[in-house]
Computed example of a mutant assay.
Amino acid sequence: MDYRNPAECLSLLQSLQPEKVDETHALLSTIIGTLLDALPAPNQHFEVLEAARPTIARVQAELGRRYADHPLPPDNEENATLMHVVGLWHNLARSYTQIARQDAQTGTLEDQRALLSQRRIHCTGQMLVEYFRAHRALPAGLWTEIHEGFAAAEATGLVRARVSDPLNPLWKAQSAMEAYISILLIELSNPFGRSGRELRWICRWAQRFAPYCSLEPDTEGRKPTVYGLDLGADHGLRPLGLLRKSDGVRGFDGSKLANQIQAVFTQFKQGVSPASLGLGDDCPLDTSARLLVSLYRPWGLASAGRKFPRRGSDGKVDLCGDWLAIGFHIQGRLFE
C-alpha cells in the first residue's frame, strides 16, 4: 500500500471498518501523516482529507472516551491515547494549512479558500477540546496556533463565509469566524469544572450559539470588563481591561447571544423540548436549563470580576519529603 498516493488512500478509506477503532485510527494516522510529508497535488490531498474527516471524527470520539472526565498520570496508557488523538487532529490541521499554502501558487482550489480556513481552525480547536476532556493543562503555543489560523482566515477576507460542514450537528455549515468563536465559548464555559457529559453538550451548544457572537477590531468605548482577545497572546478571551492595546486586539460581543439564551429560557417555560431548540436529543430539560444558566453570564454578558482583588506578594515555603524528617519537624525530636 502506497500511502503517498492519494488515489490509493481514497480506495483504502472506502474499506475502513470504524467499529475497529484502534486499527482504523492507526490507518488514518498513517494516511494523514504520510500525505503531509509527501506533498501531493493540493486538490488530490484535499479530496483525501475531506473523505477521511467524518471517520476521523468518529474514531477520535471513541478513543476519547478512554480518558475523558478524569485526570491522566503522564505515563499511563490513557495518556498515550490522548497524545495519539491530539496528534491526529494536529496533523489534520497542518494538512489543511499546507494545502492552502501550496494552492496559493496554482489557484486550483480558489473556491475552497473559506473551507480550508474553517477546517484548519476547527481541527486546531479540537486539540484544545481533547485537553479539556482529559483535564490536562494546555501546552504552550496551542492558543497561538489557534489565533494564527484565525488571523490567516481574516487575511483571506472570507472569515465570515459559511461553508458546508457535516460535523456541525445543527447548522450543517460554519464559517471560520464561527469555528473560532465556538472554541472561545468552550474555554469560557469553565471546561475543567464540567463533567464529560456537560462538556459534550457545551461543545455542541458552542456551535449552536456561535453565529450570535462577533469579534470586532474596534474596542474603543467598551467597558474593561467586556471580553476581548489578543491574537498575539497565548491565551483565549480575557477582560479588555487586562489586554494591552495593539492591532491584534479584538473585542468580543455576546449581547445577541444573551438575548438568544433568554429566548431559549422562555421556550423552556412553555414546555418546548431542548431537542426541538437544537440543543440535542440527549438533553433533559431541567439539566439543560441549569447548565445554560451557568453559561449565561460568561457567554452573553461579561466577566464577573473578582470580589476581592489579588495582591502580589512573596515569601518562603519549606518543603520536606523524608518521613523521619517530617516526624522530627512535627514533634521536635526523632520519630519513634
Rank of each mutant, 00 (worst) to 15 (best):
Q102A: 05
H70Q: 15
Q174H: 11
Q98P: 00
Y296S: 15
R58F: 08
L13S: 02
C320A: 09
A57C: 12
L39S: 15
L158E: 13
I261G: 00
W143E: 00
F335K: 06
G300Q: 01
G228H: 07
E198I: 08
Q267G: 01
S273W: 04
K269P: 00
R204C: 08
S195E: 15
A179R: 05
A152L: 14
D69C: 07
R208I: 08
G315P: 08
T225A: 14
F265W: 09
K256C: 07
A134N: 10
M1H: 13
T156L: 02
T24N: 13
N190V: 00
N259H: 09
S29H: 14
Q17F: 07
P40F: 01
G107D: 03
R310I: 03
G236V: 11
L10H: 07
P166L: 12
L116E: 02
R120Q: 10
T97P: 01
A233C: 09
E50W: 01
P73E: 12
G141C: 05
P54W: 08
S189D: 08
R113F: 00
S189M: 08
A179N: 15
A7Y: 10
A93N: 11
N79G: 02
D318P: 00
R222N: 10
L12F: 04
S288N: 02
T108L: 09
A233G: 06
H84L: 12
T106M: 02
R290L: 14
S189W: 04
G33I: 03
P166F: 03
E154C: 14
P191G: 07
L82P: 00
A134D: 08
L243N: 11
G300S: 03
V21D: 09
A304G: 13
P239H: 05
F308L: 12
L116S: 06
A51Y: 05
Q260K: 14
F192I: 02
E50Y: 02
G33Q: 02
Q102K: 06
T144P: 01
A289S: 12
E216R: 11
R290G: 07
Q44T: 12
A137S: 15
L334K: 11
R160N: 15
I330S: 01
S95F: 03
D318Y: 14
G280H: 09
